[in-house]
C-alpha cells in the first residue's frame, strides 16, 4: 500500500518532529500564509453594513465585448444549422433558379388527331404547325405557346379542359430543375448545378414558384412524355381537388407514376381518376393502364 493511502492519524507539520526537508519547507511556506492578514476591522465593519445588499460587481473588461460577440456568433451559427436541418420545402417554394439545359428538352407533342379525322386540331383551327426547329428549351416552349395559342394537345378532346392550357413562364421552367433534383433525392446535384449556372440565373434565386405555375409546367412536361422530370417538378405539390384541370392533372400524374415505375401510386391515382371522372376523356386510357 502506498504511503498516501494510509489512514493513520497525522500531526500538523508545524508540530511534527523529524520532518523531511521538503516537509519543513512546506511548513514554512504554510506559516507565511498563516500570518497573512485577511480583513482589517474597518473592512469588516464596512462589509457588515453591506450584508443583504447586492454584491458589487467587477467593472466590465475589454473581453466582455468579445464574449458577447462570440455568443452572438454561436447563436447565429446554431440558427443557421437549425434552419439547414428543416425539411425541404415543396417545389412550389423552391428558391433557386437554374437555367434549363438539354436535359429538359421537351419532345414535340404529337399533334392530336381529331376524332375520326386525319387533321390535327391546329390544322382544324386554321393554324399552321409551328415552324422551325423543335422546341428544346424553355424559350422554345414559349415560342411554341405563342405560335399555338389554342392548339394544346388533348385540349380539344378534354371536355372539362379549357381550350388553352397555360404554359409555364420561362422563369418557372428555369426553376424546375432544382426542385426536380430535390424531389429525386439527388441532393448534391442542385448545388453543383447552381454553381455551374451563369450569374444571371443565380440572381433569381430566392423566388418561389407559384403552385399554379408548377402544375402548368408539370402538365406540359407530362404531355411531352417527360414523366421523370414532370414528377420531379411536381414533388409534393398538391393537385387541385376541383377545377377544369383537376381530372387531367390527376390522370397525368398516375400515368407518369406508372411510367416511372411507381406502380402503387400510379394505380391509386388512376383509380381515383376513374372514381371521380368515370366518363372523363382519359377514362378509357386509364382503364387500359390499370389492366
Amino acid at each position: 500500500m502506498s504511503a498516501d493511502r494510509r489512514n493513520v492519524p497525522l500531526r500538523p507539520w508545524s508540530r511534527t518532529e523529524g520532518k523531511t526537508a521538503a516537509e519543513a519547507e512546506a511548513a514554512a511556506l504554510l506559516d507565511a500564509l498563516r500570518s497573512a492578514e485577511t480583513l482589517s476591522d474597518e473592512a469588516l465593519a464596512r462589509v457588515g453594513r453591506r450584508i443583504g445588499q447586492p454584491r458589487r460587481h467587477a467593472p466590465v473588461g475589454p473581453r466582455w465585448g468579445l464574449a458577447a460577440a462570440g455568443l452572438a456568433s454561436a447563436f447565429a451559427v446554431a440558427l443557421v444549422l437549425r434552419t439547414d436541418r428543416e425539411p425541404l420545402p415543396p417545389p412550389a417554394a423552391a428558391t433557386r433558379a437554374i437555367a434549363p439545359d438539354d436535359r429538359f428538352a421537351v419532345a414535340p407533342p404529337a399533334a392530336p388527331r381529331l376524332l375520326g379525322g386525319s387533321r390535327t386540331a391546329a390544322e382544324a383551327a386554321g393554324l399552321g404547325a409551328p415552324e422551325g426547329p423543335l422546341p428544346s428549351t424553355a424559350a422554345g416552349l414559349e415560342r411554341q405557346r405563342i405560335a399555338m395559342p389554342s392548339a394544346a394537345p388533348r385540349a380539344t378532346r378534354h371536355a372539362a379542359a379549357p381550350a388553352e392550357r397555360s404554359v409555364a413562364a420561362p422563369q418557372a421552367l428555369r426553376l424546375e430543375r432544382p426542385a426536380a433534383e430535390k424531389a429525386m433525392r439527388r441532393m448534391d446535384a442542385p448545388e453543383a448545378l447552381l454553381a455551374e449556372q451563369p450569374a444571371p440565373a443565380r440572381a433569381t434565386a430566392g423566388r418561389a414558384i407559384p403552385p399554379e405555375d408548377v402544375l402548368s409546367a408539370f402538365a406540359r412536361l407530362a404531355d411531352a412524355g417527360n414523366c421523370r422530370d414532370a414528377l420531379g417538378l411536381l414533388g409534393a405539390t398538391a393537385l387541385p381537388a376541383t377545377g377544369a384541370d383537376a381530372g387531367r392533372l390527376l390522370f397525368d400524374r398516375g400515368r407518369c407514376r406508372l411510367a416511372t415505375g411507381r406502380r402503387a401510386g400510379g394505380r391509386q391515382d388512376l383509380a381515383d381518376y376513374l372514381a371521380r371522372f368515370p366518363r372523363g376523356p382519359d377514362a378509357g386510357e386509364a382503364r387500359a393502364l390499370l389492366r
Binding site: A3, D4, R6, L10
Partner: peptide, 20 residues
C-alpha cells in the same frame, strides 16, 4: 475520520509534488 487521514496523506503528497 479514517477517510480524512487518507485524504490528508494524499493532499500532503500532492502539495509536496506541487512545491517541488
Amino acid at each position: 475520520v479514517g477517510n480524512l487521514w487518507v485524504l490528508l496523506h494524499r493532499a500532503r503528497a500532492a502539495l509536496l509534488r506541487r512545491l517541488e
